[in-house]
Amino acid sequence: MANFWRAAGLGYDELRNSQALAWILDRFGDHGQGSAILERLVELAGRQQPIAVTPETVRRVDYSTRTESQPLGDRESRVDIEIESPRFLIFIEVKVRAPETSDQLKRYVELARQKAAGRPSVVVFLTPDGRLPVDGKLHGTIIPLSWRQVSNILTAYVSGERADSFSGRIFLQFAAHARTLAR
């Protein structure tokens, strides 16, 4: 079966995969699904460890989604996906094949805390296998997710009547692509 994402050349390119996922998570994305996928991602993250951002909060507020963000102008730190609203801040560090770099996640936790300025903040570490950060001190702070979990979120969301819609097909194709990134 043809897959739009394969044809677009996403492959294992971290930046392209981040941009595609950011579009899917963007409430203003022209996919027409609003915040539905981010709500489910936040719900899954909250099941892994308690967080102060809820699906209800995501549903009720406008938020912006950016890729390759440099929070607070920190040129050393480039967050793959930043999702920000007046009520929360989410950083998503995307890994496809690249390893975790030195203190990258530690910097992101600190940058999220600073930029959030009292708002709830969450740092998600999205990897092929949903691994924990190398730095054990970050366990319980960073939320590990896998590409398979992203695939499962999309597949569950699209099941039923949405499966035949254009955006439903695109989401299912991304879910199939995300499974190729999982280990």
Rank of each mutant, 00 (worst) to 15 (best):
residue 81 I to H: 04
residue 13 D to F: 09
residue 169 R to S: 01
residue 105 L to W: 01
residue 103 D to L: 09
residue 22 A to R: 13
residue 147 W to M: 03
residue 37 I to C: 05
residue 130 G to V: 04
residue 42 V to R: 00
residue 172 L to H: 00
residue 154 L to N: 13
residue 140 G to C: 08
residue 25 L to W: 05
residue 78 R to Y: 09
residue 19 Q to Y: 07
residue 97 R to N: 15
residue 155 T to M: 08
residue 17 N to D: 11
residue 182 A to I: 02
residue 45 A to P: 08
residue 157 Y to A: 05
residue 108 Y to D: 09
residue 180 T to Y: 04
residue 165 S to I: 04
residue 12 Y to T: 15
residue 109 V to C: 07
residue 108 Y to V: 01
residue 131 R to F: 06
residue 164 D to W: 09
residue 126 L to H: 06
residue 81 I to P: 02
residue 17 N to C: 14
residue 113 R to G: 12
residue 5 W to F: 09
residue 169 R to G: 13
residue 8 A to R: 03
residue 144 P to N: 13
residue 16 R to D: 02
residue 146 S to P: 09
residue 76 E to F: 12
residue 91 F to I: 07
residue 176 A to I: 10
residue 62 D to F: 08
residue 124 V to H: 01
residue 59 R to V: 01
residue 72 L to Q: 12
residue 75 R to D: 00
residue 113 R to D: 11
residue 166 F to P: 10
residue 91 F to M: 11
residue 66 R to G: 00
residue 121 S to M: 09
residue 44 L to P: 06
residue 176 A to W: 08
residue 112 A to H: 07
residue 153 I to H: 03
residue 105 L to S: 02
residue 92 I to W: 02
residue 21 L to W: 15
residue 138 L to Q: 12
residue 8 A to D: 00
residue 92 I to E: 03
residue 180 T to V: 05
residue 115 K to W: 11
residue 46 G to F: 04
residue 2 A to W: 02
residue 33 Q to P: 02
residue 119 R to N: 05
residue 154 L to I: 12
residue 98 A to H: 13
residue 67 T to L: 04
residue 158 V to S: 10
residue 5 W to D: 00
residue 20 A to K: 03
residue 39 E to N: 08
residue 119 R to M: 05
residue 164 D to Q: 13
residue 96 V to K: 11
residue 10 L to E: 08
residue 128 P to H: 09
